[in-house]
Design a protein around this nucleic acid. Sequence first.
RNA 1: GGGUGAUUAGCUCAGUUGGCUAGAGCGUCUCGUUUACACCGAGGAUGUCGGGGGUUCGAGUCCCUCAUCACCCACCA
Length: 819
Amino acid sequence: MLIVMKHKLDCQILFTSSRLHLKNGTIQPMKKELPKAYEPGKYEPDILKLWQKANSFAPQKNAKGKPFSIIMPPPNANGSLHAGHLMFVVEDIATRYARMQGRPALWLPGTDHAGIETQVVYERELQKQGKSRFDLGQEKFYDEVWEFVEKHKGGILTQFQSMGFSADYSKLKYTLDEDVVEIVYDTFDKLHKDGHVYRGNRIVNWCSSCNSAFPDIELDHVERKDAMYTIDYGSIKIATTRPETIFADSAVAVNPNDKRYKDLIGKTATIPLINREIPIIADNLVDPKSGSGALKVTPAHDFNDYEIGLRHQLPEISVIDTEGKMINVPEEFAGLEVETARRLVIEALETAGKLVKVTPLTHAVAIHDRCKTVIEPLISEQWFLRIKDLNKPVIAAIESEKVVFYPKRFKKIALDWLAQEHDWCISRQNWWGIRIPVYYKTSNDPQKDTYIIAKNETEAESYYGKGNYRAETDIFDTWFSSGQWPFATLMSTGDFDTFFPTTLMGTARDILHKWVTRMIMFSLYRTGDVPFRDVYLWGLVTDEHGQKLSKSKGNYDDPMEITKEFGTDALRLALSIGITPGNDGKLSLEKIKGYRNFCNKLWNVARYTTAKLPDDFVLGDVKLETPADHWLVGRLNSAITSVTKNIEAYRYSEAGQTVYSLLWDDLADKYIEYSKSDLNPTMLAYGLDTVLRLLHPFAPFVTEAIWQQLWTNSNLITEHWPKVIHKPSTAEAKKFELQIIDILASKQKEADKVMAAKLQKELAAKQNLLQLIQAKLQNEAFVVNAPKDLVEGERAKEEHTKHEITQLEAKLARIKKTT
RNA sequence: GGGUGAUUAGCUCAGUUGGCUAGAGCGUCUCGUUUACACCGAGGAUGUCGGGGGUUCGAGUCCCUCAUCACCCACCA
């Protein structure tokens, strides 16, 4: 038995009007004067208010099902909605679906202080005033950025709400919230106690513009035209692209199996210009085929050389400082920028007759992904996380599918990365972020300063007594803190016990390594459990040509402008249908327009339906009266089953497509047309009811706007998910089904007959054509005299026609079998 | 160098464990303005599912191979 809702329509409309349009005082016209076209802008703000007033985004108190939760990837607190946030629609669909399933559903939103990104933005502001962060000092700079972010904070959340993102905004967290930072500090302390953290003087990627170290994963590579210089080292000739670093050489390495240099191993080479003698050593890392087969070893300025240096205990001589200037070099080069120094060193080498040859070379240069400055490897004191042991449980959890990736292929990609990840440099020399909670007790000899993990100086003193303390100035890599986001947020909102581990993490596939794997790592380390069960990774949203959306390219319309013109639902549908997990999704105005039309179709189905309902309409038990009723209920049932199944498997494109076709093809084009001659209002109402429910997670605004004009006094957002009714088990239903099958079959037969005749004709024509071609090709005069490509063309045509004939014959055979 | 994805109608893309007589939207052609909707309806055309090989009763789907494009990782003296 199905009882949907009972209400008198007229009363409902008055009620709805006052609710929807209270603020601007406009009165919703009566049902028959509803506008012909759905105007999203007229309804969306009110619908949003309706949901907010009902507190519908918070987990429903009476919900009894299994808790459902998503932690929102925190957007930059300081930013505004951009293409990168659009796919959050995926998380909203999941949340709305879970809510309708009767589960307590929490989508927890948060904002990110966005370390370097925001620092760069604010430094640009300072630049406009002719200042740099160094004029302010670390503390003042931090305070000013804090103020700056506070001022802009919130804009993005308003935009998220207007996208219909049904996150629980009352629980909003910020990455610099005190309680979150506290948890990050505890993690660091624990990691340190367990021996996973160390401070070391090691080679790092240095960005001289940001004045900070960065891990490999935050680098990009660009192709650059350069030259390779072969330099005379006395006993041996060496090829290099970095002649300015010859002063930092501590050895020359050759491959032990390289016959050319076998006798030189153990002897020395001489660095030109400074005439320093360095040993010639053997190391397997050297590729005999590369360059001259001899490698100058510069442990302080090259990652491979650093490794070789460690193996052979070579001295590490630094010749480039953190500003990117030359140091510890002959006076004429000291203080120069790297590029300038290179030019002058080459000139000097040439003058000294030590430059053997110059060959042009195109190679990839590492740059910092944020500021695009060329990265300089150099030795610096940093904090590192020993990653190998920490990653072991992560690998186990992914292998045993305690965390499941959608699409599946990312499982392997994540595992491959985890197995080879190097120790993670977690310190940054930036100023906007969470300061590493370390104090140094100063002594006369700075080399002998001892450090203590402490949140503040008082805490430090409780360990080492009164004295002079120096606070660590380095801050954490943003990913170090955001890696703890899932449990840190839930712990601080008090929802940990109910909602952890979370159900789903949806995020962009390009932060799989930086973020997803590290969340799993931190979570397993701190809580013993994975942070989420499922990971949905989406690709880039691009324009219709696959170009990244960007304002400078001019192919980017502000999403807010799009929604204003076509409606939020149209944009949301364009983002959910035809875009599959893991792949880039193309967005075009045409596509959005199409879904705007779809929303309008739905609107008009609702107009038609309400117009057909009698004034005293009561929707109760749905009785199947006409053959079309039986047909429709079958369509509805299979749509409910299929949409449910597809949403649960995160196949939103399939699910959306199914509802689309259910509304347009089945309900609108067929059932409504049929109903014009044989009307069953109850069935019509039931059809609309089901479509609205199924569509709500995808297009929340239009469905709710319609719902508010119907016979119900509830809100669709917290309504239940539709259930299959009238399973075709009754004899009556089967009878009608058979009838319909019969009708369809006889129609099919007729169509087949027509088709067969048509195919026969086509086949004859093709056979004729083939004969003509073959005759031509058998004509020797043609084959010999005609231009070659003409003959080739004929041959291709022959092949093609043959293929077509086989296809036609096969088709014909199939049709004949059925008739 | 290692890996992943894509290649399906003019365009943009779906196609889950092999069952497909290959779909959708847009575009195109023909016809149609009768009060749900022209942000519309009815009907039509268009496909060697990148090439080649294989497994199978059956392949768009699985395997091998080649090609092109995109991306990721590593390296680049």
